[in-house]
Nucleic acid binder design. Sequence first.
DNA 1: CCATATAGGACCATTTTAGTCCTCTTTACA
DNA 2: TGTAAAGAGGACTAAAATGGTCCTATATGG
Lengths: 159, 159
Amino acid sequence: MLKLSKLTDYAAVIMAQIARDPEQAHTATELAGQVNLPHPTVGKTLKMLARSGLLESRRGSHGGYVLSRSPAEITASDIIAAIEGPIGMTECSHADGECDLLDTCGVADNWQRVSQAVRTLLECVTLAHLAQSSPLKLPVQLPIQSVTLPSSIGAVREH
Amino acid sequence: MLKLSKLTDYAAVIMAQIARDPEQAHTATELAGQVNLPHPTVGKTLKMLARSGLLESRRGSHGGYVLSRSPAEITASDIIAAIEGPIGMTECSHADGECDLLDTCGVADNWQRVSQAVRTLLECVTLAHLAQSSPLKLPVQLPIQSVTLPSSIGAVREH
DNA sequence: CCATATAGGACCATTTTAGTCCTCTTTACA
DNA sequence: TGTAAAGAGGACTAAAATGGTCCTATATGG
C-alpha cells in the first residue's frame, strides 16, 4: 500500500491545525480536542515532532507547542521523517543498511532513483499546502529529478 | 519510512530476473536459485504476481512463469499493487474506506493529490527500467500531475 | 501412471504499530 | 514558596501486519 503510519497521519493533521493559528502556543489537550483524537496519542505525536525540531515546546503552565519554522518551510517529507525516520522505499535506500541480496538483486540502483524522486516530490509539498483547506487548482510541473532511461530497453510510458 | 514490504521487494527482483530472459518459462525453483531466496517464498510471490495478471503461469512439467506483457508495459506501480494492493499514502486515498476523522482532518484533499503524484511517478517507471543493470544517465522531466498550489499561503520550495 | 509444476489456502512466529500510563522536570502565578 | 499546568522520557501491553512455511489439490508432459 505504500502507506503512511497512523501516527504520521495524525502528525500531519496536527501540524496543519497548528499552522492555521501559528501565533499561539497549542497544548496537547487543546489539539486533541480540535483534532478529535485521544490526548495521550496526540501528546506522543507532539513529542516526536518536537524532538525532531519541527515544533518548539514550552513547558510549564501556559506552555505548549509552536512551529519552529513557517508553514512554507516545513515539508511533508520533514513530517514523515519525524515520525517514520528517513524516507526510502527499499532497505538499501539509505547508505548504511547493507542488504544481503545486493549481488543477486540487480534492481537496487534504480529503486534508489525512484526513492529519490519520491523524496523530492515530498520535499516540494509544504505544510502550507497541506493546511490549505480549499486549494486552488494550479497545476505545476514539479522538479522531479528523474529515473534514468536505459535507451536500449524501454521508453517512458505515456500518460 | 514509506517502505515497500519485503515481498514487494522480492517481487521486483524476481520480475527483473524474468525480464532479462523473457522468452523462456521460469520455475519457482530456478528463480529461487538465481535470486537467492527460499523456494516457498519465491513461490508465494510468483503466485501473487500471476493472480494479478503480471505473469502467466503454465502448470505441470515444463511449466513455469512468463511475463504477460513486455517489460516496457509493466510498471513499478503494477508490481507494488500486485503485492500490496492499491497505492495510496493515507487511509482515505481510495474511495471506499471512510475515515472517521474526515471532518476534523482538513488535509485529506491534499494528501490525495500527493498520493496521486506518487502513483503517477511509479506508473512512469517500467520493469524495463528496473531490470536494466547499468542504466544510462538521461534525466527527464516526469509528467507528475502536481499538487495544487494555494496562492494565498505558500510557494513551492526551491531545490 | 509418475514426476514436475503451479493453485490455493491454512497456519504460526515474529515484528511493527498503536495506544496508554507513570514518573520526572519545568514554569507561571497566586 | 506552593501548587497547578504543562511537556519529557520511557516502559509497557494489546493488536495488527508481515514473513515464511507447509499441506493438499490440480494440471501437464512423457
